[in-house]
């Protein structure tokens, strides 16, 4: 199969119109944004929505802006836009560091950040990154807007807490209040493949050089992207020393829930997370302090 099933094609020009169409068609419809996950599934006919609601024409969903201590990234921002947005690197380094790992360049030119989040693939790179960033997803439904914290957003494999007629319109990333550094670590079987395991680490320091905000997101190691809660607890408030790195990296796998598959065993994936955590923290320490702390 290479052709999608026949479907009705709707092209709303506003969010309200899109929400109205989603309400009207319900389960039978799917929103088409970048389409880089949905269309391949439709071509193989394992997805066969009766209606496609193409939101690419909605101007309000484009671009990003900083306001109220947050960066609001519109639903139509493509992976490649964040990959190349060097103006965001100072405050939001995890964005371009994550974007460059997603699939391949032509796909990144088309696929969107919000589309990827809503697709809720457990291997999603943005899932892990947004967990590390403690992002919120802004959604709009018939009742108006609401913000869903990222930890409440992912429900299960391919399932989010969005209602059937709610459209994700943006993702909000908090603006850091101090020096910031981040790493996205991923091992692939082939360039562009889904991760064997992935880890996003986002660190903001306080004025004393201790970790004020520390976010660690785990990718491809569970039914949904996961937060390394125990590791974060051990990290926040600490200087990044060898001891911190050892403790934190040991704790990261404890919140992972990987499965054995063609990409490797659960034990392997857990260990990758440990290695990634240590490497990420070491690099971050070197970036922020010039070296790992020795306190």
């Amino acid at each position: 199969m290479v052709f999608p099933n026949a479907f009705k094609y709707e092209v709303p020009t506003s969010v309200d119109e899109a929400v109205r169409l989603m309400t009207e068609y319900g389960y039978d419809s799917k929103v088409l944004a970048g389409g880089q996950s949905l269309l391949p599934m439709m071509k193989l006919r394992i997805a066969a929505p009766a209606v496609l609601i193409d939101v690419n024409g909605i101007q309000d969903l484009k671009g990003w802006r900083e306001a109220d201590g947050k960066l609001r990234i519109g639903a139509l921002v493509r992976h490649a836009e964040l990959e190349h947005a060097s103006e965001l690197d100072d405050k939001y380094p995890l964005l371009s560091r994550t974007a460059r790992w997603i699939a391949d360049p032509p796909i990144r030119n088309r696929g969107t950040i919000c589309g990827s989040l809503v697709h809720a693939d457990p291997g999603s790179d943005w899932g892990a990154a947004m967990i590390a960033l403690r992002a919120e997803v802004e959604v709009q439904g018939t009742e108006g807007n609401r913000l869903i914290p990222i930890d409440e957003f992912f429900v299960d494999t391919f399932a989010t807490s969005l209602n059937e007629n709610e459209l994700a319109v943006a993702v909000h990333v908090p603006t850091p209040g101090g020096p910031v550094a981040a790493r996205y670590m991923k091992l692939e079987r082939r360039a562009g493949d889904f991760a064997i395991a992935a880890l996003a680490v986002h660190i903001v320091l306080d004025s004393e050089g201790r970790v004020a905000e520390g976010g660690i997101g785990i990718g491809a190691c569970g039914p949904i992207p996961l937060r390394a809660t125990k590791a974060e607890e051990a990290l926040i408030g600490q200087p990044i020393t060898e001891e911190t790195i050892a403790t934190v990296s040991r704790l990261v796998p404890e919140d992972a829930d990987p499965a054995d598959d063609l990409r490797g065993s659960a034990a392997y994936k857990r260990d990758l997370l440990r290695v990634f955590a240590a490497r990420a923290l070491r690099e971050i320490a070197e970036e922020l302090h010039g070296r790992v702390g020795d306190e």
Partner: peptide, 16 residues
């Protein structure tokens, strides 16, 4: 190239 950028034309609808 779609509006100047490389994309995979098997994964974009002609109507788009």
């Amino acid at each position: 190239l779609f509006d100047g950028k490389p994309i995979k034309s098997c994964t974009v609808l002609a109507v788009q």
